[in-house]
């Protein structure tokens, strides 16, 4: 092969490689109008699915609020990889969403009211952080006990996320057990009449048959 042919062959190879890379990048970004889905927190299978929504205005302040006080670690929630786990939930027709956080080491989940005046709550955490205390370590789920008293009607909305290997979730309120439905790593239960003073325990049964328990610290006013 002459020097000229070798140069031509090299040129074609380089151009093909660049074009291939560009095509892969473009295809990834344009897929469903979102970025390529990276496996954020592999234990939550829903993150392997394409994101549901771009930006929900009700989440506008979520990404920045903790950074307001921390001075700006790279901890913003990725609003473009939001996943809706449930819609039209409970008394406020709430939406349960989950999104990756803190460079994919963390998870934010939020219960968004239908309107801006409906109550909502969000929580972010690092599920696999080795520094978690004993009561949270290796728990395979995270739940929030969200109390509201709107128009004189007290209630608790239990909501959160559960790992793929959670086969069953149930809740005990003041000693009475009930099932908590889990769907696509999310769970929600509306408890009219419940209070932040109630004694509540949540129990997860994992695929290997083992159990994880968490007692909500509902102790005082």
């Amino acid at each position: 092969m002459s020097a000229l042919r070798r140069r031509r062959a090299l040129f074609v190879l380089v151009v093909t490689a660049i074009a291939g890379t560009a095509a892969a990048v473009i295809a990834g970004v344009s897929d469903a109008g979102t970025k390529v889905v990276r496996p954020a927190v592999p234990e939550l299978g829903v993150f392997s699915e394409p994101a549901d929504t771009a930006v929900d205005p009700r989440l506008a302040g979520l990404a920045d609020s903790p950074r307001f006080v921390s001075g700006g670690k790279s901890g913003a929630a990725d609003l473009f990889r939001l996943h809706v786990l449930g819609r039209d939930l409970g008394a406020f027709s709430s939406t349960l969403v989950v999104l990756p956080y803190h460079e994919d080491r963390g998870v934010c989940y939020a219960l968004l009211g239908r309107t801006e005046t409906d109550p909502g709550m969000s929580y972010c955490y690092l599920p696999l952080d080795p520094q978690l205390p004993d009561e949270l370590k290796d728990q395979h789920f995270s739940g929030s006990w969200f109390y509201t008293n709107v128009d004189g009607v007290p209630r608790v909305q239990l909501f959160g996320v559960a790992f793929d290997d959670v086969n069953r979730l149930r809740l005990s309120v003041n000693g009475s057990w009930r099932e908590v439905p889990v769907s696509r790593n999310g769970f929600y239960l509306d408890l009219p009449g419940a209070s932040y003073k109630d004694s509540a325990r949540i129990e997860a049964t994992l695929a290997d048959g083992s159990k994880r328990v968490y007692d909500f610290p509902n102790t005082d006013d």
Binding site: K73, F146, T148, P217, D221
Partner: peptide, 16 residues
């Protein structure tokens, strides 16, 4: 009290 988060395990630096 009209809304309450209950006790959460928090860390501002980690965004929790």
């Amino acid at each position: 009290v009209v809304a309450d988060t209950n006790s959460q395990y928090t860390n501002c630096s980690d965004g929790a």
